[in-house]
C-alpha cells in the first residue's frame, strides 16, 4: 500500500489545529472559581480544590453513603481531624480515579477512605471513556458553559476561593425510620464484584501509594444496600490487595446506630444523628491507627474553626 505523505501531513495538520482549538476551549470553559454560578460540576465535593494546600489528612470518596455518613466538621470539633468528603451521587470507581488524581495535585492526605458500596456498582465502557476524555479535555466536560461565558473567562485565570463549610458533607435532619430485621445475617456467600471494579480499585491503590496515602476501605452502616455477602466479597478483595477494611455494619455495639432515629430514608442513608455516631467511632479509629492527627493547635485551626462557626449557621446538628 502506497502511503501518500502529503495527505498524511494534511490530516495531521488538521488534527493539530483541532487539538489547539480544544486546548483553547478547555481553558475558556474551565470554571474560574468553585461556585455554582461558574458552573463547577459536583460542587459539593469539587470544592476541595479551594482548601489550602496540604491541609487535609483524610479524604473520603464513594457514593452517597460517603457524604451522608462521614461528618468532617464533627470530626474536626471532636478530634481535630481535617477531612473532606469527595463522594458524589452514585459514584463509580472509574470516576473516583480522576477525582483522586485531581485531589493529589494540591493535597497530601494520609489516608483515602473508600466507602465500599460503590465497588459493587457496574459501569459501562462508554462511562469509562467519558471520564477519561473529560479529564484529559475539560472542554468536553464543561462545554455547556457557553451559556454563561463572560469576558472574565477569556482571562483564563483560575482562582478557587469558595471554601466549603460542610467539607462535602450533606447535612440532613430528616428521619424516616428503617428496620434492622435480617440486616447482616451471617452467610458464607459472596456478592460478585464486577471485574472492572477490581481493575479500578488496583489503580486507585497504586495512585494512593504513589502519593504516600494509605487506602482504607470502609463500609458505612446501611440496611438497604449492604449485606453480609458484600461484606465477605469486600473482605476477600481487601485481603487479596493487602488493604484494611472496616465494616461499620459489623460494629453495631461500638457505633450503636438506632435505625428508628438515625436514618433519613428507611436505612439507605444516615441522617445527622447517624453520621455523628459513625464519625465519633471512625474518628477515634483514625487517631488510634495513626491515620490522622489532631490539628487543633496547628496553623490551619483558625480557618477550620471559622468553618465550624459557619457550619452552625447551615445546620443545627452540632452543639455550639
Amino acid at each position: 500500500m502506497k502511503i501518500k505523505w502529503n495527505r498524511c501531513i494534511k490530516v495531521l495538520g488538521f488534527l493539530g489545529v483541532l487539538a489547539c482549538c480544544l486546548v483553547f476551549l478547555s481553558f475558556l470553559f474551565l470554571p474560574k472559581n468553585d461556585t455554582d454560578e461558574e458552573g463547577m460540576k459536583d460542587l459539593k465535593s469539587s470544592s476541595v480544590v479551594a482548601e489550602p494546600e496540604n491541609t487535609i489528612d483524610v479524604i473520603v470518596v464513594g457514593d452517597s453513603n460517603s457524604y451522608d455518613s462521614f461528618h468532617p466538621m464533627y470530626m474536626w470539633k471532636q478530634y481535630g481531624i481535617t477531612s473532606f468528603d469527595c463522594g458524589t451521587a452514585a459514584q463509580e470507581l472509574c470516576y473516583t480515579l480522576p477525582i483522586l488524581r485531581n485531589i493529589f495535585k494540591t493535597q497530601s492526605p494520609k489516608v483515602v477512605v473508600l466507602e465500599t458500596d460503590c465497588i459493587f456498582r457496574e459501569f459501562s465502557v462508554p462511562y469509562q471513556i467519558m471520564y477519561k476524555v473529560n479529564e484529559a479535555v475539560p472542554a468536553f466536560a464543561y462545554h455547556d458553559r457557553w451559556k454563561n461565558l463572560d469576558l472574565r473567562d477569556f482571562n483564563f485565570t483560575v482562582g478557587y476561593t469558595n471554601i466549603s463549610t460542610t467539607k462535602g458533607y450533606e447535612p440532613s435532619d430528616l428521619t424516616d425510620p428503617g428496620t434492622a430485621e435480617g440486616w447482616m445475617e451471617e452467610t458464607a456467600q459472596l456478592e460478585p464484584v464486577p471485574s472492572e471494579s477490581v481493575r479500578y480499585l488496583k489503580s486507585i491503590q497504586q495512585l494512593c501509594q504513589k502519593n504516600g496515602a494509605k487506602l482504607l476501605l470502609a463500609s458505612a452502616p446501611n440496611t438497604v444496600s449492604w449485606n453480609y455477602k458484600k461484606h465477605n466479597a469486600t473482605q476477600q478483595l481487601a485481603n487479596e490487595l493487602g488493604l484494611d477494611f472496616v465494616d461499620l455494619n459489623l460494629c453495631q455495639d461500638e457505633v450503636q446506630i438506632d435505625w428508628s432515629t438515625d436514618t433519613r430514608d428507611k436505612g439507605d442513608h444516615l441522617n445527622n444523628d447517624g453520621a455523628k455516631k459513625v464519625s465519633k467511632y471512625f474518628g477515634q479509629y483514625l487517631l488510634d491507627h495513626g491515620l490522622a492527627t489532631d490539628h487543633r493547635e496547628d496553623a490551619c485551626a483558625a480557618e477550620w474553626d471559622k468553618c465550624l462557626q459557619d457550619y452552625y449557621t447551615v445546620s443545627a446538628d452540632l452543639d455550639q
Partner: peptide, 28 residues
Amino acid sequence: KLPVRWAFYLGLVLYIIIFGAYGFGYLP
C-alpha cells in the same frame, strides 16, 4: 480551497462539541 474546507470542518466539529446536548446534565 483547503483553508475554506478546513474552516468548515473545524467549525462543524467545534459546533457539535460546544453546542451538543451530551455529558453532565444530559441523558444519552
